[in-house]
Simulated scan of single mutants.
Amino acid sequence: MRDLNLYDFKRALPRMSWTRENLYNLWRRSLGELAKETDFTRTQKTLFQQRWIAKRLIRAYHGDFINEKTFKRWYLPSTLPDVRPRRGQTEDYVMQLSKWAKSPKVMEKNAKVRRQEIDGEEQEELPPVGSLMFSEVERRIDVVIFRACLAHSVYDARRMVVHGRVSLNGKKHQNANARLAPGDMVSVDPKAISFLRPKPPRAEMSSEELAAEGLKNEPSVLADGSALQKVSPNGGSSSVEDEGITTPQFNLPAYASPFIFVPAYLEVSFLACSVVYVRHPTARPGYSEIPTPYDADGEVVRLAWEWYSKVRPRNRSKRQLAREPENRQ
């Protein structure tokens, strides 16, 4: 990548990562001193500057590893449905005529009707379709691995794919630009997962770790006095008190655990280190399935879409279609 300093504190651009530096930049953009840069209600910036800032923030998180030209041509949808409420002009025209006619009763009646319509529009929640601009990016195999919490960052997920540590539907897959289809299963080599570490033996665990695992008060012997046994893969048995037993488990960083989650369109099996891409992400009133650090229907997403609305994909020729990244539909 051209930009190696991804977590620069001066720019503070959130990325797809669970590192300390990225979470700190995310806090600065959300609640810190840089939160005012995305508040465009009272600003002296021009509309062009607002759109460029929104586009810069959006692209830094959603697919900064994708070339801008490639993103415009293959990952940008041609259209997005406009669900913003459009206020009719008939009532305003009648209110203006009543004002000039000096009819206070008619003006009061029209104003009351207008207030009821506005209240009804506010109560009716609209789906945040602006976030669907990134639905094609969320289908990428490296992004799916990161969303499934099988990689520390999307850049680690790309390395896993390129180095042959990932299987797609049971076959080795090394194309990180592939877009998955509903029903595809992605499996990751457990040795390549940084979150997966061997669990220490019970004899070496502290009282706090035992309490966290729920093993502090667990009896180690059965009612008849025999020791609790565990069946080994080769058919034998071993005691849980043996010091040689180490079982792998996911050890998430303490600073990232409260923020890690799995989207609704993925089905993850941490025991098998695999994830199934169930369906394409959608949006419903008041909720968007695409994770984003910004408001799914806020000013940043809307201004970014307005920036890209002028560079929508053109009609693609056969020569251009031959260079399209792998799309499994």
Rank of each mutant, 00 (worst) to 15 (best):
R2W: 09
D8H: 11
K10L: 12
A12M: 04
M16L: 13
M16H: 06
T19V: 05
N22P: 09
L23Y: 11
Y24A: 14
R29C: 05
S30W: 14
G32P: 04
L34G: 07
E37F: 12
F40V: 05
T46F: 01
Q49M: 11
Q50E: 14
R51L: 07
H62N: 02
H62E: 07
D64L: 10
I66H: 11
N67G: 15
T70E: 15
R73F: 10
R73Y: 07
Y75R: 03
P77G: 02
S78V: 15
S78E: 09
T79F: 13
L80P: 03
G88C: 04
G88A: 05
Y93M: 13
M95R: 11
M95G: 03
K99N: 11
S103K: 15
V106T: 10
N110R: 13
A111K: 10
A111R: 10
A111C: 07
K112W: 05
I118W: 10
E121I: 15
E122L: 15
E124R: 12
P127N: 01
G130A: 05
F134W: 11
S135I: 06
E136V: 05
R139P: 00
D142G: 02
V143G: 00
V143T: 10
V144W: 02
A148F: 02
A151K: 07
S153T: 14
D156M: 10
M160D: 08
V162Y: 13
V166A: 00
G170H: 04
Q174V: 10
P182F: 03
V188Q: 03
P190V: 06
R197L: 15
P198I: 01
P200E: 04
A203K: 01
E204N: 04
A211L: 00
L215D: 03
L222W: 01
D224Q: 00
Q229K: 14
S239M: 03
E241P: 00
D242A: 11
E243S: 04
P248V: 09
P248K: 05
Q249R: 15
A254Q: 08
A254M: 10
Y255M: 06
Y255N: 10
V268E: 07
L271C: 13
L271V: 12
V275H: 08
V276A: 05
V276E: 08
A283Y: 00
R284A: 03
P285D: 03
G286T: 07
G286C: 01
A296G: 06
D297R: 02
D297F: 08
G298K: 03
L303Q: 08
Y308R: 05
S309D: 13
N315G: 13
N315W: 10
N315A: 14
L321V: 13
R328F: 00
Q329K: 09
